[in-house]
Design a protein around this nucleic acid. Structure first.
Lengths: 141, 141
DNA sequence: CCTGGACAGTTGACACTCTCGACTAAATGG
DNA sequence: CCATTTAGTCGAGAGTGTCAACTGTCCAGG
């Protein structure tokens, strides 16, 4: 209930959001990190984000990133590296331990998702993926 | 990148999750409450959950709910009501202010979602809703 | 040059979230 | 009637998140 468009798209989005959140949190916890830490580690895997970029990616204030990085660095999962082109910026690099933990985390999430969709017909799964991407783009606007 | 099934369903789910999270958080903030408080208020609108039920719905420990309710009660958005059938349980009831704020919150989210999907063809929107629901059910397993 | 404004990260203060273990009170079932 | 279970609370402690104020660096315009 509670809707404007006649269909309850909002409710469906939030229900899905809650399930993904639950899965993501459960796996994070099992790995001994918080969901926010998991997110930062995943970002740091592809790029080597500056603190400001990390803040943007995480949708939070840059001052928050300082503490987040502090805790992960204390555990040896990442390091702060000076940016060679701009001495103001510090970049986040994963350590070998960080890479391993991040890989394990992603594998665990992938496995869990794959298991839950294992019984889906290929046609449904094929239809879902582009719609999810389109919905994401729509929401980003 | 990072995937088991060939398609990157996991990535798409997490991307969508992040957008919904961003929207939900932004609206909560605009309303002067936290996302967790918003969730609890929404639940309390339909049912009158006990603390344990609230904890289950919010995927968190019951001790967390005590503080959550404390803060919302201090702001006059809800009350603790004794359950007539079991004197151990306390139920959460929204006040008039709480109902109003919750309604405003839901309207704001609905409006934002509707606006972002306004340009979607009806056919796409019709296809999206059942797939979202099915995906939610799949993940719940 | 060199100075002022913009930008990157840090710090301290503060509120909220979240969990754990220990506790009280009430229900329940031998 | 007593043992157990269940509901909520409390205190301690770690993490998340914001804000305002600060330092250091970069990059113009004068």
């Amino acid at each position: 209930m509670a809707d404007t468009t006649g269909d309850d798209l909002t409710g469906a989005l939030i229900d899905l959001f809650r399930e993904v959140d639950a899965l993501f949190s459960a796996v994070s916890r099992r790995m001994g990190i918080t969901p926010q830490q998991a997110q930062l580690l995943c970002f740091a895997q592809h790029r080597q984000p500056s603190f400001g970029e990390a803040a943007t990616l995480l949708h939070c204030d840059k001052t928050n990133v300082t503490g987040l990085v502090d805790r992960l660095q204390r555990r040896g999962l990442l390091t702060r590296e000076a940016d060679p082109h701009d001495r103001r910026v510090t970049r986040v690099h994963l350590t070998a331990d960080g890479e391993e933990l991040t890989g394990d985390f992603q594998d665990a999430v992938d496995t869990a998702v794959a298991a839950r969709f294992a019984s889906w017909p290929a046609a449904d799964r094929a239809a879902l993926l582009p719609l999810l991407r389109a919905a994401t783009t729509a929401l980003r606007a």
